[in-house]
């Protein structure tokens, strides 16, 4: 059996699964709108949290946060599960699927067969949607893959029980009711934008929001002293991967959020948002410029010299520009 489920690609897996699930229940939203309503743009650099021995830099809130905010705002009811027994996890999945309900799953990518091997690290917060089963094979809609794919039940079980940081433990979820659904309204969009502004501007700690970008810049200047040439370059590579590797729509969600501001501007009848969208696009281009220059540290191009101060300066500028954009955005949203 296979559900009549429209598979559509998305920049980010979580946005994509939410959008495709909602679409199944005839709630049609764009990926940027999901990102915007879910307040999915952020920045944090946390030297004390490490993955593969390197500080974590992130351009979005914690995994699952976008999903929770969007469904809460739309008043869509969600049912979530977690299982200690893998066989029960598979049985429950079948039971729900055969009630013609598409099911979102949290999986690890380390053993995901259709992923390129270069991407297969122990990352355990990937989202996919199971939309059918034929014999022993599940039909899966993974938003970062062009076509629907197939996974054997053994493979699916393995990725649902991936190990490492934050193991998924068979986590799954589905929409249980849309009876109280509220269509997107002005207030909802406004609140979501204000939440993003608040996170980017007002968290009183140096690691988060626009301050966090400056914090990363400051730390970066000492990386060579702290980690040596090679270690510094590895840290920089890690930042670039978080900015660009699958799921951000380019430049750490900046372009996707700019697309949202454009859509929101039209929806709210506020042309000023279109200008801010353009400004955020320019900032996205600065992030890309940063990545391009940063890449010199691990792929030497001829006749180029690079210093960490140089790329750190670029980040300081980005921090300043983002501060301006979100301050203006906050002002517009708070007026009237």
């Amino acid at each position: 059996m296979q559900l009549n489920f429209e598979h559509k690609t998305a920049g980010h897996c979580e946005n994509g699964v939410v959008r495709n699930l909602l679409k199944y229940y005839e709630v049609d939203l764009s990926e940027p709108m999901i990102l915007g309503l879910g307040s999915g743009l952020f920045f944090s650099h946390m030297p004390f949290y490490k993955m593969h021995g390197m500080p974590i830099t992130s351009f979005r809130p914690l995994p699952g946060a976008i999903f929770s905010s969007v469904t809460r705002r739309l008043r869509v009811k969600i049912k979530r599960y977690k299982f200690s027994n893998p066989d029960k996890a598979m049985a429950k999945l079948d039971e729900i699927l055969f009630r013609e309900i598409p099911v979102g799953l949290l999986v690890g990518v380390y053993n995901l067969p259709y992923f390129p091997k270069e991407y297969r690290f122990h990352f355990n917060a990937h989202n996919i949607c199971v939309i059918g089963k034929e014999g022993d094979e599940y039909i899966v809609s993974d938003p970062v893959v062009i076509q629907k794919c197939r996974l054997s039940s053994a493979d699916l079980k393995t990725v649902r029980y991936a190990q490492g940081t934050y193991p998924p433990r068979g986590r799954m979820y589905h929409i249980s009711s849309i009876k109280r659904l509220r269509p997107v309204d002005e207030q909802m969009v406004r609140k979501a934008i204000l939440k993003t502004c608040n996170r980017m501007l007002h968290i009183p700690l140096p690691m988060f929001g626009v301050k966090g970008i400056a914090y990363l810049a400051t730390r970066m200047r000492n990386w060579v002293a702290m980690y040596g040439e090679r270690g510094a370059a590895l840290n920089l590579a890690q930042v670039i991967r978080m900015l660009e590797e699958i799921g951000t729509g380019g430049a750490g969600f900046r372009f996707m959020y700019a697309a949202f501001l454009q859509e929101a501007g039209e929806f709210l009848g506020k042309p000023a948002l279109r200008d801010l969208s353009l400004e955020l696009t320019a900032i996205g281009d600065l992030w890309r410029d940063f990545s391009y220059h940063a890449a010199r540290f691990f792929k030497k191009r001829e006749g180029e010299v690079a210093s960490y101060d140089q790329v750190a300066d670029k980040l300081m500028k980005i921090s300043q520009r983002e501060k301006e954009v979100f301050t203006r955005l906050e002002k517009i949203m708070k007026s009237e």
């Binding site: 893959v145 660009e244 372009f255 700019a258």
Partner: peptide, 20 residues
């Protein structure tokens, strides 16, 4: 890395009218 697989990056970019 990606071209031998079915995995792709979705990028958001402006068309000629300045629409994403």
């Amino acid at each position: 890395i990606l071209e031998s697989t079915e995995v792709r990056d979705v990028c958001y970019a402006l068309d000629e009218d300045g629409t994403y």
